[in-house]
Design a protein around this nucleic acid. Structure first.
Length: 453
RNA sequence: GGCGACGUGGCCAAGUGGUUUAAGGCGGAGGUCUGCAAAACCUCUAUUCGGCGGUUCGAAUCCGCCCGUCGCCUCCA
């Protein structure tokens, strides 16, 4: 039984999808800049959820949108003096490059707001018909007072909320009403609608795309903790008002946000935040391990040192799996570790505990292999479990300009000769040279093996 | 003002009433192996969970107060 924490009820609940196929919607990014490690965190968390559900035998349909019309995009286009479509194309491409680099599986569908305009307009019409929305000067607003349980997701109360907001000049019926459709402003991208030219408000696209690609009721809705209010709150309201079906989403899952340590970190934020540059320095596995060693609802600490630590930890797993197999009658039964893993993951994706099971298994493998046991089925299990968490067990990127294989081979031979003649000083000098080039060597009996670090 | 999160070893981080005198990772110390290393393995590295009270046979885990850190309420994964 899989239990997941539901932000709506603030409790762990048994996961029960409505149908055969799990319908999961994850809020995507607004494409106006490169992805940073905060996006990576969210991508990885929902990638793990997707993969784990599949590991547990579910079929998953995952939808993740691109918000490709928005103030920030328009501003960026103006700043760069290019058409806004050029901005969105560029950063959608960048997003995929980052996610692919992070070994995040693509969603089943990646819809774009601008491509589902008819559905967005139709949904707004339904809301007007249901008297949950009203037109005003070419814009359309959602009437928050029309839904008695408005605020249930974020625990906000409309009246208390209004006190905290600044009182902007507006003719809206209620200050808390939010825009479903924004009337066109000069020089802005716009689409025709029954209320005149304009563009969709931020929240409506997600409801429209969820309805279109998954249906009016979905199993899982995910996103960052920072989206609970107003975005997800408004999404629930408009979706349930339009469909008259409750709940819109069976479980709301929110990942924690990245945390940084004071002033020291902020200096290097620029680079540390960019996923593509982080991937030049660290393996995708290290980035993923750094994130999954914390629970997804906590706020992981962003610190390059920790990602470096994770890189070393990954090497332990890789080495255990890749070690030369022993052929033997005796073998290690890894089942208890699999049970531990499943039990941990079933409990609201407790990845730190799941990883502890994997690390323990790796140690057990090394120990029992040394005692002459066949650990190949254990190695297969480690591959299976790490893969369910999205690790690819690939080596980290090369840090320095490295030697090619034949150059390494020549140096290894040179050292071998030196060792045979017990010229230890010469042998160690070659080893230092290789080490500086990112090659580590190990002597096992007469053989010398080398690997790129 | 409103909603909410957090404070566990040198660092990161699970655990949320007894099987935990607290998992796992990184780092550190010693050892085995090795020409020396690397890797691996073994041992050690919090009698203690921000502080003070309380509930209980029993608390890191529940309650109260205090101290500290942080997020959201405006764009944000």
């Amino acid at each position: 039984m899989i239990q997941l924490y539901n932000s709506l009820t603030r409790k762990k609940e048994e996961f029960k999808p409505l149908g055969e196929e799990v319908k999961m919607y994850v809020c995507g990014v607004t494409v106006y800049d490169d992805s940073h490690l905060g996006h990576a965190l969210s991508s990885i968390v929902f990638d793990v959820l997707d993969r784990y559900l599949e590991f547990r035998g579910y079929k998953v349909k995952k939808v993740q949108n691109f918000t490709d019309v928005d103030d920030k995009i328009i501003n960026r286009a103006n700043a760069d003096k290019v058409p806004w479509q050029e901005i969105t194309e560029k950063y959608i491409e960048s997003f995929f490059k980052s996610s692919d680099g992070l070994n995040v599986r693509r969603a089943t569908v990646h819809p774009r707001a601008t491509e589902d305009m008819p559905e967005i307009i139709e949904l707004i019409n339904r809301l007007i018909d249901a008297e949950a929305a009203y037109e005003l000067g070419g814009s359309v607003y959602y009437r928050v007072r029309s839904k008695s349980d408005y605020g249930k997701l974020s625990g906000q109360n409309i009246d208390e909320m209004i006190e905290g907001t600044r009182n902007e000049e507006s003719r809206k019926e209620d200050p808390a009403d939010f825009a479903l459709w924004k009337a066109v402003k000069p020089e802005e991208p716009n689409w025709d609608s029954p209320w005149g030219p304009g563009r969709p408000g931020w929240h409506i696209e997600c409801s429209a795309m969820a309805f279109k690609h998954l249906g009016e009721q979905i199993d899982i809705h995910g996103g960052g903790l920072d989206l609970i209010f107003p975005h997800h709150e408004n999404e629930v309201a408009q979706s349930e008002s339009a469909s008259s079906k409750t709940p819109f989403a069976g479980v709301w899952i929110h990942n924690g946000l990245l945390r940084t340590t004071g002033a020291t970190m902020s200096k290097s934020l620029g680079n540390a935040f960019n996923v593509n540059s982080a991937l030049e320095e660290f393996s995708s596995d290290a980035i993923r391990l750094w994130i999954l060693q914390s629970h997804y609802r906590t706020n992981p600490l962003l610190d390059k040192k920790l990602i470096g630590d994770a890189e070393r930890s990954m090497r332990r797993i890789r080495q255990a799996v890749e070690a030369v197999p022993v052929v033997s009658e005796k073998s290690l039964d890894p089942e208890p570790f699999k049970r531990r893993f499943v039990e941990a993951m079933d409990d609201d994706l407790n990845t730190p505990q799941a990883l502890a099971a994997i690390f323990d298994l790796c140690r057990k493998m090394n120990r029992t292999r040394a005692d002459g046991n066949d650990v190949s089925s254990a190695a297969d299990l480690v591959r299976e479990l790490t893969s369910a968490l999205g690790f690819n067990l690939a080596a980290p990127p090369k840090k320095v300009e490295s030697l090619n294989d034949s150059e390494v081979g020549a140096l290894v031979q040179k050292r071998k000769d030196a060792r045979a003649e017990k010229r230890w000083g010469d042998a160690d000098a070659v080893r230092d040279q290789l080490d500086a080039a990112g090659i580590s060597i190990s002597d096992t009996g007469d053989e010398t093996e080398w690997t790129r670090k």
